[in-house]
């Protein structure tokens, strides 16, 4: 189904949805876009994508798996509650990352908390009309237009939003805001307008790096001088912590006799990630870890899940200390 929504009416649509969901949306906090619980602030849908990807709402960088309490030698466990949430403004790159995570985290045995959060979260995606300088989703085939994985999809047509439904839950959401929505009378003309707009954005992204492609990256991987590049890598792990497809974690029990089992985001950029119990480390050198990070993104995730591990969001480049994560590597 397809509707038009006046831009000024989007907050009202969200207010109505907040009867069912906690609304999570990008807003500016001290001038920088952040995903937070929305309380009516101005939405920052045209700002650059927040650094913390929305995928981290399903697999938080640090979460309690359960708390344990010991009484007279017997343990009782408590599992955290999962909230019903609606995330607004998820861009196609992050949506693609989420599809990839689904294939990994929901394959048997499915990750219980991820699965619970996934089922209790609705998504209003946003076709990307504001790509940042470092974006290359088009080259990775992940954007700028979303094709699946959303409940509702917004496209900024300038004067108003085009709103498309992608699931029964999305249709339900349009029902509670029916009078805010205007049905498209001439579906074909509207779709043409959207197609033109998205083609223009896609061209803009492609023209910024016409030489870049997934195949190009894969074939260049082995030719790059990782050793000299890695001299400036401080192994901070930042690229993993903001990558929407990174999902490695470590688990620790904190506290005795009572405490909690936590799960926290880990990074294969860190040396200890690879160290074996004997102390031997097959990836003791940062150049090996950098290469394996890219191999994981460009080769292994693709062969394991059928989706490339790089969605072209450019976040790794935005946080890289030594400036080595950049598409120019593959030029």
């Amino acid at each position: 189904m397809m509707f038009f929504l006046e831009k000024k009416d989007l907050p009202e649509l969200l207010r109505r949805a907040s009867a069912f969901f906690e609304i999570i949306a990008p807003v500016l906090v001290n001038e920088e876009p952040q995903l937070v619980s929305w309380r009516g602030e101005d939405l920052a849908l045209r700002a650059p994508n927040p650094l913390l990807p929305p995928t981290r709402l399903f697999l938080p960088p640090r979460e309690t798996l359960f708390t344990y309490l010991q009484e007279s030698g017997l343990y009782t466990f408590q599992v955290p509650q999962v909230k019903e949430r609606l995330i607004v403004g998820v861009r196609p790159c992050d949506l693609r990352a989420l599809s990839l995570l689904d294939r990994i985290m929901l394959s048997e045995p499915a990750d219980e908390l991820y699965s619970k959060r996934r089922r209790s979260t609705a998504i209003i995606a946003l076709n990307c009309t504001e790509p940042s300088e470092g974006c290359f989703c088009a080259q990775m085939g992940a954007g700028p237009e979303a094709d699946e994985g959303f409940d509702l999809l917004l496209t900024d047509l300038g004067d108003q939003y085009l709103l498309e439904t992608g699931s029964p839950e999305g249709i339900m959401l349009t029902r509670v805001s029916e009078e805010l929505l205007e049905s498209g009378t001439d579906a074909e003309r509207v779709l043409m307008r959207k197609m033109d707009l998205m083609r223009e954005i896609r061209d803009r992204i492609m023209n910024a790096r016409p030489w870049l492609s997934h195949d190009r990256m894969r074939s260049r991987l082995r030719e790059i001088n990782w050793k000299s590049l890695s001299k400036e890598c401080i192994s901070c792990g930042g690229c993993s912590f903001v990558c929407p497809t990174c999902h490695c974690f470590t688990i620790a029990d904190l506290g005795l006799p009572d405490g909690e089992r936590i799960r926290c985001a880990d990074s294969c950029i860190l040396s200890g990630f690879h160290r074996m119990a004997s102390g031997a480390n097959p990836k003791a050198n940062p150049e090996d870890r950098l290469l394996s990070w890219y191999m994981e993104k460009l080769e292994y995730m693709l062969s394991r899940a059928g989706i490339s591990g790089c969605v072209g969001c450019g976040r790794c480049g935005r946080v890289c200390f030594s400036g080595l994560h950049k598409t120019d590597l593959f030029r």
Partner: peptide, 27 residues
């Protein structure tokens, strides 16, 4: 009421970067 992630601010001095200790502050 729990800190579950850290991201760098884009303002000076670090302009969007952090060290490993910073990224892992919540723990």
């Amino acid at each position: 009421n729990r800190v579950n992630a850290v991201t760098p601010s884009l303002k000076p001095p670090a302009r969007g970067r952090l060290c490993a200790k910073g990224w892992l502050l919540p723990d």
